[in-house]
Design a protein around this nucleic acid. Structure first.
Lengths: 181, 181
DNA sequence: GAGGACATGTAAACGGTTACATGATTAC
DNA sequence: GTAATCATGTAACCGTTTACATGTCCTC
């Protein structure tokens, strides 16, 4: 699938960015959705430039720092990402190690499992708070009544995250109650 | 993390199994949660046997077929999986390509996006039905009032799946409504 | 006679994570 | 003086996916 390529094009379809910007957007802002390391971002940008999907928009040079290379998407790159977005795909499977731990809960003392659940629940509560904040921020930037607004798409994705975290928290609470019976 | 090792031990903690059985359980029954290929299962079983985490319980030989090697967990393996289950861990990020497509929905015609959502929703509805069936099946096997019953743990995990699919379906419906505005 | 189930395994390719390397500036 | 930020990139490793290989039995 090489999903990293599509992730990069998805971001560049919105605005010109440098490799560093892309890493920041992925790891800080939309962190829990996708992540990427420099080793994936920089070589992939180089490949995509060769293939004409993106082009160097400009280079910002400060003497004491590596040149900041800002890329923009080309018409060809836009077509590729649009095609991919419309392409039908298979649903993927949930991959979460904590579910595997829950599958083993019968093996451990209920008090121990309760502690585990408490810790995981807390982490999901933090994520939930971060997503809600992110949505509030995005709402202020939104062009109302325009569903072709990229901000509206961003909000939809983060809303998924909100619902996911709420589900996870509720599920933890239900399991915690069971450990106390 | 080498989560494949923990997945194998989690299954073997419940009952003795062959490599083939394990693949079946992962890819058919609990499919959408974890998957594994033969290239992961067989070498990992061999390594775990060497390390004394599992042992060969017996070999069923039919002349016309490779010998069916059934493994059982050892006390040492049991300790390893219990330790891991109680070990605190970081929450993982959601990795789902369709969310990336939704992030790009502003790029495509609303009718096209509607079709995409319809297809994905359908797939999640099928999964939901399969999970509900699985739970009904598990409920009949359950030892009631015993939370140390492995079946109860299985049910909890599949219940997570149920809630996840319901969330996904609702989210698709909300987005579909937006495409029609 | 074609294809799937059973049952083990290997090989090659891909994708992702962690760590390394450089080097000046700024903040504590 | 220590650590973080900015900014590019490389190297080594690990885990996963897909395909290949063998061989018989059973069903359509």
């Amino acid at each position: 699938m090489s999903s990293i390529r599509y992730a990069l094009l998805s971001l560049l379809a919105r605005e010109p960015l440098s490799g560093y910007d892309i890493k920041q957007q992925m790891n800080n802002r939309l962190g829990p959705f996708w992540k990427a390391g420099s080793n994936q971002v920089y070589p992939e940008l180089a490949k995509m430039e060769e293939e004409g999907l993106i082009r160097l928009q400009g280079v910002e040079q400060l003497t004491y720092r590596p040149a900041r290379k800002v890329y923009e998407i080309t018409e060809s790159g836009r077509q590729v990402i649009i095609e991919w977005t419309m392409e039908p795909g298979e649903v993927e499977h949930i991959r979460d190690n904590f579910l595997l731990k829950a599958y083993n809960s019968w093996l451990v003392a209920p008090e121990k499992m309760y502690e585990q659940l408490e810790g995981i629940k807390k982490q999901h509560e933090e994520r939930l708070a971060a997503y809600l904040e992110k949505i509030a921020e995005l709402e202020t930037m939104r062009t109302h009544g325009n569903e072709q607004d990229p901000i509206a798409s961003s909000i939809s994705v983060v809303e998924f995250g909100v619902e996911y975290e709420r589900l996870y928290i509720k599920w933890c609470e239900r399991l915690m109650a069971k450990q106390q019976q």
